Simulated assay, not measured.
Amino acid sequence: MFRTVVFTTALALRAGDSLVADLYARATGSDADFKVITGLIVDVRQNLVEPHDSDFGFENSLVVDTERITVGGYGAFLEDYEVKHTTLRRA
Rank of each mutant, 00 (worst) to 15 (best):
M1T: 10
M1D: 07
F2Y: 12
R3P: 06
R3H: 14
T4H: 13
T4M: 08
V5H: 05
V5R: 01
V6W: 08
V6N: 00
F7D: 08
A10N: 12
A10D: 09
L11M: 11
L11S: 09
L11H: 14
A12H: 01
A12E: 05
A12S: 08
L13P: 06
L13I: 07
L13D: 00
G16W: 07
G16F: 12
G16P: 00
D17E: 14
S18E: 15
L19N: 05
L19M: 07
V20D: 11
V20Q: 12
A21D: 02
A21H: 00
A21R: 03
D22N: 09
D22F: 03
L23Y: 01
A25C: 15
A25S: 06
A25Y: 02
T28K: 14
G29F: 11
S30G: 04
D31W: 08
D31C: 09
A32L: 00
I37T: 06
T38Q: 13
L40I: 02
I41D: 09
V42Y: 02
D43K: 11
V44M: 10
V44D: 01
V44N: 03
R45M: 03
Q46V: 11
N47L: 02
L48Y: 10
E50I: 13
E50P: 11
P51G: 11
P51W: 14
P51T: 13
P51E: 00
H52D: 06
D53Y: 10
S54R: 11
D55R: 14
D55T: 11
D55A: 12
G57T: 08
F58G: 01
L62P: 00
L62H: 02
V63H: 07
V63R: 14
V64S: 06
V64Q: 06
D65A: 15
D65Q: 14
D65V: 02
T66N: 12
T66W: 09
E67P: 01
E67F: 09
R68A: 08
R68S: 13
I69E: 03
I69R: 13
I69F: 07
T70C: 12
G72Y: 02
G73Q: 08
G73M: 02
Y74C: 09
Y74V: 11
Y74A: 07
G75W: 08
G75Q: 09
G75C: 04
A76N: 06
A76S: 15
L78M: 15
E79G: 01
D80P: 06
D80E: 05
E82N: 03
E82V: 00
E82F: 01
T86V: 15
T87Q: 05
T87F: 06
T87G: 05
L88M: 03
R89M: 11
R89I: 10
R90C: 00
A91N: 10
A91Q: 09
A91C: 08
